[in-house]
Design a protein around this nucleic acid. Sequence first.
DNA 1: GCCGTTTTCGGCCCGACTGTTTTCAGTCG
Length: 586
Amino acid sequence: MYNSEIAKIFHEIALYLEMDNIPFKPQAYEKAAENLEILSEDIAEIYKSGGFEALEKISGIGKSMAEKIEEYLKKGKVKELEILKKKIPVDLEALISVEGIGPRKVKTLYQKLKIKNLSDLEKAARDHKIAPLDGFGEKTEQNILEGIEFLKRDKGRFLLGEIEPVVEEVIGKIKKIKEVKMISPAGSVRRKKETIGDVDILVSIKKTSQPAVAKAMAGKVMDFFVSLPGVVKIWGKGMTKSSVRMAGGFDMDIRVVPEKSFGSALQYFSGSKEHNIILRKIAIDKGLKLSEYGLFKGSKMIAGENEEGIYKKLGLKWIPPELRENSGEIEAALKNKLPKLVEPKDIFGDLHVHSNWNGGEDSMEELAQTAMKMGYEYIGISDHTKFLRIENGLDEKKLHERNKEIDKINSKFKIKNSKFRILKGCEANIMPDGSIDIDNKALSELDYVIAGVHSQLRMTKEEMTNRIIKAMENPHVDIISHPTGRIIKQREEYEFDFDKILEVARETKTVLEINSFPNRLDLKDTNIRKAKKAGVKMIINTDSHTKRTFPLMKYGISQARRGWAEKGDIINCWPVEKMKSFLKKS
DNA sequence: GCCGTTTTCGGCCCGACTGTTTTCAGTCG
């Protein structure tokens, strides 16, 4: 896809222009880059069918940028960027990823010290060559070294699943301070992004007419925050904002805001930046001004205590944080057409659970007991099949035995007058040729069949696409587990044609899994949205090998929400009979 | 550089903090 390549080029041009302090042009390039990223059609196709004029019609693209796109499509490069790069030949993307370093500092560092990349930067900082430069200093030099360390470890982003439990604990503790009125996470934690750069927490303190008292209360919160267990470094501590590094290696910021501005601050710090820019523009169009302090008409504050009020005054329905990425949610809110997103209470059960029959931790009965306690109506046991020897995969005979055991447990439930049921499933392996590693007769004894790719992940795009298609065409296969195969921060998704998979999934009524494991979250949000649009049904599963990971379901749910999924899109939000009849493909 | 029933010229989102300064540039969200 050329879109993201060209977006990257425009992004880089923007950075170079910022280096020279050129006003407004950088934003224009950033804007264009962003529009290209979210454009669903292929830019090369647009050019092929509509020519230069079609390029100019794309929002944010004018004559000059259309020329650059044309140039790139024809020659594979953009001369203007080549010239800029020649002037300051540095690894811009890497250098600005260091906290506190921006394009202007990159320029100075190159001109004074010939720093081109991260290792140059690290060496210069270690040799104390940076502190003497104009505009730099001891502190900056130290921050650079720490910033580089941070980057080296985990590329500076953390899984939501690692971060959120810590955030919840911290919030729980701060909540207990009696001066605290409201508290909420903000930023990407609140939007439930799959990875988190740093954490923002927002606090309001109880109303008082005396500024000195307010100050003392804020001070108390700040003192408490920076002395929390788990804080390893204090970056800064003030009356309105403090910032710390946690033992987990990530940073956490807290802000104290007045009660009357809590909603506007929450809105503002929840982002995304792109979402907020549009909101501010809407405010301006209405003759208003929106900031973290409130929504103002002249000097009069007309909203700010809560988010709903702000959105309402701007003519919008309140938008769930998971949607705030400027990817159509504002338009939808204007037309009152926001989706009714799936919620934890909508989930009836989990169909991707491994028992001790295939090397999992817990017996089927224990798993069922835990699921019942969570309020589920059913649980599906989907043990691995024989190809996965390392996971103790079951062969036809073992699978049959296991099924009989499930019948036994289910009849016990019946005696106890419980509605709860264990469903018989498996997670079969999709072989490189697309066949399933266990025979159809064994599969036909099951309530449902999950199939997944677990081996030989490196194939050509065509081979992998055909492999998965063939599996979906098996009349017994109901669900494809972790369909893209990615592991966040470890492994890219495999090469395959997702659009084609969607087509066949719809035709064969195959369900695609949203795997809830924090390092999988597969499908990812953009895939989910595509699937929904294509009319393909999905299921949110945990892929648990122990009852302890049942609660991870919430990450799958938030991922589904980020993908605009509603109850109707997710089959484990349906009553069990409806779900079962949908699964029976043949 | 882009955009436009307020405009083909004059606007582009806003504010705070840090580290460097001694009034502010750069970065960040």
